[in-house]
Design a protein around this nucleic acid. Structure first.
Lengths: 252, 252
DNA sequence: CGAAGCGTTGAGTGCTTTCAATAGTTGTGG
DNA sequence: CCACAACTATTGAAAGCACTCAACGCTTCG
């Protein structure tokens, strides 16, 4: 079971170190050998252009995906023909975990900009898990995270005012970019105002008005998709009245 | 690996057939032998009274739970000191799946009435999974279900009117009770109006007004916690304008 | 260049909330 | 057993937040 763990470290570096999934694999106890095994089932560099579907609603579920670069929106279709965005996925986030039980995707995922993903065939995970003891536990942890994130979104939608929702959303994007090594205060939103409004359960006009209001208050600068956060504490003050206790809420 | 599967069927019957988890174990391929093994790690008949905590926020995560009888509410605490209910669990539902990654419970679970649960120690699941091939997949399916259910709740909160939310909630309770063999149209709500309002992101007064309105419209009879649904199609019509496409939405 | 889409801003409406009062229910202790 | 307190539920009236409708400028793209 541990006779094949000697591999070229450089090979692993190439394959995984730059992958968004790396920081998820590392801390959970996968050594270099395990990661090399994992690497053998990963199809690398699946690239997509803006608007491309990673998968559509109803398609058979065959794999989960890790975002390497770019960003995605995942959304479901409602009876009235409209969409409901259930989340945005940035580099390092996973896609497709909600479809394991149904074996069909219950939502669609589309690239918001040029993006690339790691595709992880699910049936090969099953066989691979026999060789890597912690893999199943790792996957369940990731799914557990997703459940927690969704519950943070529930709080946001159930309890927060429009103002607090947008502030929470912006701070969350900022935190997630920071943890990936990007700037905490300057970034480009890859999604439209429409998409933000949809996720946060509000009208587009309200989003637009709030951006203007935040700018007048000196909290941020917003020029279309270019965002500069000027007063993180000010934004936190807006959310603090009703955010989840002692928990890095993940709301997008 | 399959040399220990011969066991007493009657023993299995006693342990699992009446358990809410049974209909989850059965279809996924566990045979009687596997179920007997599973049974050895289940602590049976953990009973609770109304108001008892199954677990509290911040407690170490040691086990997941299956509701055998009664019902629970799970909720998180917000910074402002208020609660946010994230779901109600009826017989057959699972509790605790969101805490696997953090190893601490990120929400609390309390009995809404006299209840009993199966406690499933998580560390023993890990070792047991080596003997039961499909167990990990089964667990991931259950977690995948939870992710889907949470996303249905997101739709409800993001898109639906107060009227549609309550109608959806009632139909969902009805469906879940039906699938457990209870009456589809007559049931007692174990949760208070306050709890319903909290879950659905509304004021208590609005819930109360809607119950009155639904009753005047002949959709249902509501006497405190005793509910009689009179016009399921009428309720569905209220929700249909904005429910999730081709999906048995699970919103409580 | 024109069309289509995105983003911003204004005005008016309306759904839901908040405040308030009342009644019914539950639980506790004298 | 009743009285009292605390909680739950219902209903009314008024206020407010966010939505809808509408118009306009800006950007993108064929």
């Amino acid at each position: 079971m541990s006779d094949q763990k000697v591999v070229e470290i450089t090979q692993v570096s190439q394959a995984c170190r730059r992958c968004g999934l790396y920081h998820l694999c590392g801390p959970m106890g996968l050594d270099e050998g395990d990661m090399a095994k994992l690497d053998t089932v990963l199809k690398r560099r699946h690239s997509l252009q803006k608007g491309d579907y990673l998968y559509r609603l109803g398609e058979p579920f065959t794999a989960i995906y890790a975002v390497r670069a770019g960003s995605f929106k995942s959304y479901t279709l409602l009876d009235d023909g409209t969409d409901q965005i259930t989340g945005f996925q940035l580099a390092g986030d996973l896609l497709g975990l909600g479809a394991i039980s149904t074996k069909k995707h219950t939502n669609a995922a589309r690239a918001l900009e040029t993006a690339s993903v790691c595709e992880i065939p699910f049936d090969r995970i099953e066989s691979l898990a026999g060789e890597i003891p912690g893999l199943h536990y790792h996957l369940m942890s990731l799914m557990s995270d997703e459940i927690q994130h969704d519950q943070c979104k529930l709080v946001l939608l159930a309890k927060m005012s429009a103002e607090a929702r947008l502030a929470t959303f912006l701070l969350n994007i900022s935190e997630r970019l920071t943890s990936r090594g990007y700037s905490a205060c300057e970034f480009n939103l890859s999604m439209s105002r429409n998409d933000i409004a949809n996720l946060l359960g509000m009208a587009v006009e309200t989003i637009s008005r709030l951006f203007s209001q935040f700018q007048e208050s000196g909290l941020l600068l917003a020029n279309r998709k270019e965002i500069t956060l000027l007063d993180l504490d000010g934004l936190r003050a807006i959310t603090s009245s009703c955010s989840v206790k002692s928990n890095n809420s993940h709301v997008s």
